[in-house]
Nucleic acid binder design. Structure first.
Lengths: 183, 183
DNA sequence: CTTACCATGTAAGGCGTTACATGATTCA
DNA sequence: TGAATCATGTAACGCCTTACATGGTAAG
């Protein structure tokens, strides 16, 4: 049952590139990783304490005036831990799309409501796609500088490819729903 | 904080088409819904008890010989509950792909290990795609019979589109990883 | 005769969100 | 001066998986 949680490794992975605060980590999650992973402060801060205790990371207080700020640095032990995990086989890849769930059961909903869900989904994806395309542009500029950038770019490309597919599907699906006789 | 869980509605949704046992529900989850939702017996059976208590469903014992079997039927109250939920806006669509996570941090892994993860992912997706294409074929035969089939087909098409995109991405990503000088 | 599948259920415990609590700084 | 952002953290609680427990049936 142990070792199902990934947040420890996500944090170690992020810290393996640069020193970061808990707040910074949350921001990385919400931008670079948001396509395929998420976490809240309620899981980040306690994990940071745990990793510190386990000597996987060290902390440094860089408070400016009365404004708190603690930045964390990965230790060699932490790096080893990260590398070990990276070699292990992937345990789980999963999607939880409430939109698809509501579509699946749309026979019990009104056409209007179903179309609304589709349009909301489409808009959300269009937005996310724009962000990813912006990341991709920036990353293409810095290629060859650092190896890690290649992998970052690959995940962004995954997102772009996927989201473009979603949008294509949205158009076709909306068409089919509209063409269906009303009931 | 309430109303974050969807399992109740998933079960009501499935029962709105046909009467099913807990075991049947699990099977539906693992086939038709597996692309975008999942649940274990440990959440299905207790939810069934709860829904029964709330009179959203009724149960009938159809044990054959000494073999237990309980089939559930949705009530009008249950149907109303389902319809209400279907009208509400979607709260969350999320992906948790450990494969992408490991790829993102692949700068700290060996090329061989990273390629292995990519190949495992590719194989898994190829398999899932085959299943979906099989569903799609069957569904195209029964179109026009029942409205619900349209929506089922749309979710299958979503999966097919998405998985084909994944496979395209896999090939390109694997290429780029291999072309990269070893380190 | 053994494997796979059919079938139902409970208990423990992990995981992680949501809500709460607090306060500084920056920008319009 | 108010909103947005920076910044850290805790507590409660909901949710669900994993593991356990049990046993029948069908097919090879």
């Amino acid at each position: 049952m142990a070792n199902t949680k990934k947040i420890d490794y996500v944090i170690l992975g992020l810290l393996s590139h640069e020193t970061l605060s808990g707040y910074d980590i949350k921001q990385r999650m919400d931008s670079a990783l948001s396509m395929f992973w998420g976490a809240s402060y309620g899981s980040i801060y306690p994990t940071l304490s745990l990793l510190l205790q386990q000597e996987m990371i060290t902390s440094e207080n860089v408070s400016h005036n009365k404004r708190d700020k603690i930045i964390y640095t990965i230790t060699n032990k932490g790096r080893e831990q990260l590398k070990e995990w990276l070699k292990l086989p992937v345990q789980k890849d999963e999607i939880r799309y409430e939109t698809l769930l509501k579509l699946f059961f749309a026979g019990d909903n009104t056409k209007e409501s179903t179309m609304k869900h589709m349009e909301d989904f489409e808009k959300k994806i269009e937005n996310e796609l724009k962000k990813l395309q912006f990341f991709a542009q920036n990353l293409e500029h810095v290629q060859e500088q650092e190896e890690a950038h290649l992998y970052y770019l690959l995940t962004v490309e995954f997102g772009i490819q996927t989201y473009k597919g979603y949008l294509k599907w949205c158009k076709s699906a909306k068409d089919k729903i509209m063409k269906r006789e009303s009931y």
